[in-house]
Amino acid sequence: REEEAVERYSKHPLQNRWALWFFKNDKSKTWQENLRLVTKFDTVEDFWALYTHIQLASKLTSGCDYSLFKDGIEPMWEDRRNKCGGRWLITLAKQQRHTELDRFWLETLLCVIGEMFDGYSDEVCGAVINIRAKGDKIAIWTQEAENRDGVTHIGRVYKERLGLSSKVVIGYQAHADTATKSGSLTKNKFVV
């Protein structure tokens, strides 16, 4: 009975503490000045308290980002936990902002906080959504781009969780390649 009461009245701890960051593009400020830590949480209940309190991604203005990263990892390539890593990138067409963006972002958040990548969840650093006029982007960042088994497992599970058809191909890009790209496209290191 006591166990039941504890179960009923205790919050459900997550494996990790997570930090939500918000980026708002103000050209008069530096990139880092535009990045703000919103809050941290480490239970299922506190995740929902935050999620239901903040603006849906589809309602943000262009140039804004949400980033959700494990506590201690900053949402930038330069962080030591990110610099050898990369991202599974979902690029959306403009019209998908009104049909799929919020659902995809919520599924992404649930995947990372629920540690849904089996033995490879420790590879995950965080997730990012970029709201952009030319097309929104969602990504899961992982810590080691050379970890083929981990990266491809995460990609397969992620694609399935988003409900993408087998005809859709998603790509993984190393941050090092994104940082040094010459054109607008970064080559995919892996695809699923």
Partner: peptide, 20 residues
């Protein structure tokens, strides 16, 4: 023990009133 939750479990808490 790893705290691993599937989406249905997590979604169950979406509209649950906060515990005090």
């Amino acid at each position: 023990e790893k705290k691993q939750y599937d989406r249905e479990f997590l979604l169950d808490f979406q509209f649950m009133p906060a515990c005090i």
